[in-house]
Design a protein around this nucleic acid. Sequence first.
DNA 1: ACAGGGGATGTTATCGATAACTTAAATAGT
DNA 2: ACTATTTAAGTTATCGATAACATCCCCTGT
Lengths: 329, 329
Amino acid sequence: MADIARETGVSPMTVSRAFKRDGAVGAERRAEILAVAERLGYVFDSTASNLRSQRTDFVAVTIPSINNANFADTVRGLTEGLAERGLQILLGATNYDIHDEERLIEQLLRRRPEAIVVTGGRHTQRARRLLANAGSPVVETWDLPADPLGHVVGFSNADAVRGMVDHFVAAGYRRIAFIGGDADRDTRGTDRRAGFITAMAKRGLDATRLIAAGVPPISMREGADAMALLLDQFPETEAVICVSDLSAFGALTECQRRGVDVPGRIAIAGFGDFELAAVSVPSLTTINAFAIDIGRRTAGVILDVLDGRQNEPAKIVIAPELIVRGSSR
Amino acid sequence: MADIARETGVSPMTVSRAFKRDGAVGAERRAEILAVAERLGYVFDSTASNLRSQRTDFVAVTIPSINNANFADTVRGLTEGLAERGLQILLGATNYDIHDEERLIEQLLRRRPEAIVVTGGRHTQRARRLLANAGSPVVETWDLPADPLGHVVGFSNADAVRGMVDHFVAAGYRRIAFIGGDADRDTRGTDRRAGFITAMAKRGLDATRLIAAGVPPISMREGADAMALLLDQFPETEAVICVSDLSAFGALTECQRRGVDVPGRIAIAGFGDFELAAVSVPSLTTINAFAIDIGRRTAGVILDVLDGRQNEPAKIVIAPELIVRGSSR
DNA sequence: ACAGGGGATGTTATCGATAACTTAAATAGT
DNA sequence: ACTATTTAAGTTATCGATAACATCCCCTGT
């Protein structure tokens, strides 16, 4: 900046102002400064700006995996919502592990983000403390934690699956199974299974047809393997709810390989309304959790908080939508 | 740090050293300092560190879309390879648009990354200038640019599709079509189509069965629409190569909806070896571009450059693998 | 016993932009 | 015509860690 200032015959402060949107600089002078900067190949150094202004224009985001269309959609909604204010996403993946999450959160907080968005409401004790002390707004998403750390934009995974069970029972299915992972690593998956069990139990139905298909998040392949197990172990099953559309699709393909009619012999439901679910043959009954809206609404909350329009912890409840398609009645 | 120093009875410099891996601090003293820091709820402030040390421990990465399993895999490979050195990924999406890419690159360079990884070898003139002047190593991936900016880890998209055409011709197919997007936004998609055309032309085969199915990247749905068009316009087609596995799967489902036998009546191939391709029924013939290896190798190049083990521009050529599955002979 | 070397610690100045304050000029208002 | 207000600059000090250099102490070898 000093070079540009010398070249233009102004003070460095004026150069600094020329690089800000609302900087108090005359229009032609600003144009000249920016032209000189471009000619010299100058690129603004935000590390200095970050330190002095105590603003980084980062929003930290943790998601379980970047290779998941649902979370990617949430990130997209966030990115779009925050871009207009010049806020950049600093993204990290937790690999569905709350200890990895703790490490990641600490790393991210060192960068002094303006806000931090986490996926889910279950964290290690230390992660909770770090977030509470961070001084920046915290938003928990994709869940409705009983004891929120700050703001919440999400829904109850358990309730969503309960809705699916209710629908299946109303449609006449009774012997219903659940396919999920074999550990509590993926807290959303665990909540979905819990929702299945309570909904079945409430109606006096057998809630023990549970297939565990590998370490969460389970893949299409694992969904297929799970369906194979299910057909062997519980051949009388009429319908199966899978923890995600990916495993549901895998399960569907296993039926196709075995010549098992879907939905005639067995109905299948997934979760997440991935594009796959709409396109596959048959298309998949599923639950749309409005992933991109979670991102958009989260961005809205963050902007409101940073602009002082929102002071109380926000709680935005997304209502997942049941989508009945060809894989079930 | 000053507070911790006072509390512990050492100088701030010693506290600073205690937070570095190889800092010259006695083991018990370091433990005491870290304990005091934890008790005070101190979180290291990297903004100051970034400025003074002129190191950010960021590696900037631009990908076309985060909602793509291939690019997500590359990011995963990168993340894993760089994590051991404490390097964090700063990720941005270009939306398959080189003008968005230019803006993104400028934004990212302001953060002074240690290196920058871009997807593809086609950039705006200004983006090229920015990258060339950045002073940090540049790696172009997922392509083999004729005029590289720096390091390259990739493969020829055109050659990969040529290999697929060769295979199809060897398998006896002659009337072969290509399904892709309708614009040159996605340069990899454009290269793949070009590879198809030259390979067909070289063999004297009709290379005009080209279906454009919407703005790249084309979705499963658009792949299905494209297959509908193809079956109407060129009903004699024996095989179709799709720009990606997603569109190939969409195309497959359209055949299933219409009762068109795959591969009996028409063969289908995709690109990318997404999990979908291995699981679907029939499974999809495709090309594995080893996305995760691109990420790993790129991480390797970056570490080599930063450690001074690599001074010349690296050119790492990945050999895509043809995977023949049930959707073709 | 003493030079030489390495490990642990302290001191000082600095990274590069900008917040906060001040000043000068221009414009508006009565 | 003269004060009040706005606009466009300049000055100075600072954000918080750390590079670079200096110091001290302990250990080793001869």
